[in-house]
């Protein structure tokens, strides 16, 4: 049974690789730039990671099922525009509106995917187009700065609670809620089962379609929340506000060790993945890498991470 042993070894390696990578990266960057290890810098790192983490968390639910959501960056941007346009009139209601829209968009993506049987990457690519277009239209194709009076509503994002930045608190709440959903509820278990073996889950009486749609709803909702937080931090809303965040989000999920074939993964891993992405980004900034060229690194990281985490025994034909 040597294959059995091999498998265990590889599984263990796969499991601990992301965290090890994170630790090594932190030490490496800290050695290059000692200022990186100061509490203030680390706190800043955590704050900067929050939006990425929230986006990545949402898409983790979809990836766990073996699907993908390519509309999250458009949803987040749309949410930022909605907040910027309506916060003056609705106050805190604007946030609820934006997140409600996210849930609705996720529901529509999910229905298009499940009921019309459109592959998720194409359904969400299309939905992303619809959302982007909506954001362009309602914003008049420009970015909208928040007035000072409107910024007061953002204090739960920009302010601090007991010395901790609000955005970190939000990130922690997301972490707890998402972790409980993923690890301790029936939905989380069914997702893992569907991702790991959809026919068996179906034959065991799992309502596969319903679980999938719910995952897309979560993805849309978290994407909208990420947009809301981003709007608060940048004090503006724009149809392209989150455009650059799709790749890092998916990379965060995959780098964390969640397999894109589904079934294996957790919110904790996504947190580790998001932190890795942030540390890499900061490290590159320290090294003076052009901010646009950083996409090269993320693209490479994404492909390498997928290549490492993918379980080839599960996919006889790769398309």
């Amino acid at each position: 049974m040597s294959t059995f042993v091999d498998r265990l070894g590889i599984d263990r390696l796969r499991q601990w690789l992301p965290l090890t990578t994170l630790v090594i990266l932190v030490i490496l960057v800290g050695a290059l730039q000692p200022v990186f290890l100061q509490p203030a810098t680390l706190l800043q790192l955590a704050s900067d990671t929050a939006v990425l983490f929230i986006l990545a968390t949402g898409v983790t639910f979809v990836i766990m099922l073996g699907g993908i959501d390519l509309s999250i960056q458009s949803m987040a941007s749309l949410a930022s525009v909605v907040v910027a346009l309506t916060v003056a009139r609705f106050g805190y209601g604007a946030f609820a509106l934006a997140i409600g829209l996210g849930l609705l968009a996720g529901l529509l993506s999910g229905i298009a995917h499940v009921r019309l049987k459109i592959p998720s990457f194409i359904a969400t690519l299309a939905m992303g187009g619809v959302l982007y277009s909506s954001a362009l239209v309602i914003s008049g194709e420009r970015s909208i700065m928040l007035a000072d009076a409107e910024r007061s509503y953002q204090s739960w994002i920009t302010g601090t609670v007991f010395g901790a930045p609000g955005v970190i608190i939000i990130g922690l709440v997301v972490l707890i809620v998402a972790h409980v959903l993923q690890a301790h509820t029936r939905f989380g278990r069914y997702s893992a089962a569907i991702g790991a073996g959809e026919p068996a889950a179906y034959a065991s009486g799992v309502k596969v379609g319903r679980q999938k749609i719910f995952a897309f709803v979560l993805s849309g909702g978290f994407a909208a929340l990420a947009g809301v937080v981003l709007a608060g931090r940048l004090a503006s809303g724009s149809p392209t506000l989150a455009a650059e965040l799709l790749l890092p989000s998916i990379a965060a999920v995959v780098v964390g060790g969640t397999a894109i074939t589904g079934g294996v993964g957790s919110i904790w891993r996504t947190l580790v993945g998001a932190l890795i992405i942030s540390v890499v980004r900061i490290g590159m900034t320290f090294l003076g890498v052009n901010i646009f060229a950083q996409n090269i690194v993320f693209g490479v990281v994404l492909i390498v991470a997928v290549a490492i985490t993918i379980d080839r025994s599960k996919i006889p034909i790769v398309k």
Partner: peptide
């Protein structure tokens, strides 16, 4: 895609951003 058995949408998603990043650089 073929040798590492990475699904095409993931491979090309990565290459998409590498291409744009390289152009930017």
């Amino acid at each position: 895609h073929v040798k590492l058995k990475v699904p095409s949408f993931m491979t090309t998603l990565g290459i998409w951003f590498i291409g744009v990043g390289a152009a930017n650089a």
